[in-house]
Design a protein around this nucleic acid. Sequence first.
RNA 1: GGGCCUGUAGCUUAGUCAGGUAGAGCACCGGGCUUUUAACCCGGUGGCCGGGGGUUCGAAUCCCCCCGGGCCCGCCA
Length: 522
Amino acid sequence: MHWADFRAQKLSERGVPQVIVSGITPSGEFHIGHLREILTAEMIHRACLDAKLESRYVFIVDSMDPLRRVYDFLSRDYEQFIGVPLAYIPAPKPDGTPSDGKVSYAEHFLDPFLKALEEIGVYPEIVMNHETYENGEFAEKIDLAINNREEIRDIMMSISGRDLPEEWFPYSPRGPEGSMDGVTVTSYEYPYVYWEDENGVSGKSDIRKADGKLPWRVDWAARWIIHGVTCEPAGKDHGAAGGSYDTGIPICELLGGTPPDKIVYEWIQLKGMGPMSSSSGVTIGPMEALSLVPPEILRYVIARSKIGRHIEFDTGGALFEMADEYERLLTRIDTGEITKRMETRIKTREGALRMSQVVRGSDPIDSFAGVSFRHLAMLAQIKSSDEEIWESLRNSNHISGPPSTSIIGRLSKMRNWVGSEHFPENARINIQTEIGEGARNEITDEQSSFLVELSKNLRDCEWDQDSVSVAIRNSIGASEVAGKDAFSAIYLAILGSSHGPRASALIVEMEREHIVSILSSI
RNA sequence: GGGCCUGUAGCUUAGUCAGGUAGAGCACCGGGCUUUUAACCCGGUGGCCGGGGGUUCGAAUCCCCCCGGGCCCGCCA
């Protein structure tokens, strides 16, 4: 059974409508690590729907979280906004200075991420957490938390091992400048929390408005109740002993709710670079990843891995492997006796493919391209025209008739990939400007005279694949060289290696003068 | 210090929740095709499932101990 289906099965025991949630703080550029947060939850949601459970998928944006510090991509102007919720800070301009504030900091980073989500078929209900504060939905839980502040403080201290001061208060009011930093609570009388800032300025916050917020660990527990959350997979940082999951569960119960089951997922790492972090610059954005990898394959990267395994994200050579595995699974048919183990495997695999579809419920086979990434990568490099690629694929019986939507999508991503720094060098076709020293040493006299003959024939033949092919054959006929060695010679001269894609296709994509000059320079 | 995840073929791994004779892919080797699309097709080598103990008729799977690897514990997915 696929992990998402397994989770759905567990959730069904609750017997209530499912509310599957993701929560992310929009403090900077989103990266593909966030995609695991989103997709883990969204796949469980889909599995619930597939199991005929009533289910909603909600993305809670932590727009009420304060700016913690001035990140590297921000100008010093942001100093003044430290401690202010991200929803009430102006978005940074490209140079890092604050904009006019028409778009908030939170929205600025959120919007492109949501567009990327659409591309992978994720359409969450969006809840901006600051709005939940603004419209008073938190008020009852804030009041309850304040009235139980001793108990909550005990839970926090005993479970997390943190030492909280005697005067710790489960509500952080915003001071005169809108920041929560340096503001001390003096008293509480519903619905007002009275406070004083470092300069002795005092005021009051209405807990029915966004005049302040619950501290993270209490906020999390409270929102579970407010939104009826039944499932919220969280990153492993929250899952550590004494982490926010461990404190959230008893606090949620104290506030009168039923917490979701603890589900903790491992992080995505970039190949060879450790965990991703916006601040260390180790990051690939979802948009960038999506420009290189077809959406169903990106989903598959998440779907194929168990929640507890870390994922090594690699837009280099491993992507060939990943894409080919996906294609293989689509057409795989198991024969012979189906043992219980095999059945489990098959179910898991089918689940992964089902979860990988951009459109829920569509037949995975519709995403079948029928061409390996490696082959497509080669064609994309030697042919600038898409039409010629389809023609080539028809000739090689990879496709028949017009290209499918799926394969058109694959090719467009492939072209981006080939053009990017991530494309593996050993898969790159490098056309030589002159014959390399190594190649020159490998070329025999027979091959050499063949190449000279070929250069003559290419000088005045028609410049299409058939004519070039005829020119090659004629040159072989006019030389002493064996057919196999003739082609090796062509590849050595043009690419510097003894193998390559169909020679005529390769040559016809080159400038006549260029190829002729290379060949005659032997 | 506390805790989580993880260890299965050279590499990446499925199978572990519901115990029943270890499955893949890559790589490698061989064959087919052969005036060649790095393609494609067929076959093969290769595992005391990290180690030890226990439960069981039966353990990769459940329990205990140990060892190795990764990671988390202000905020971060």
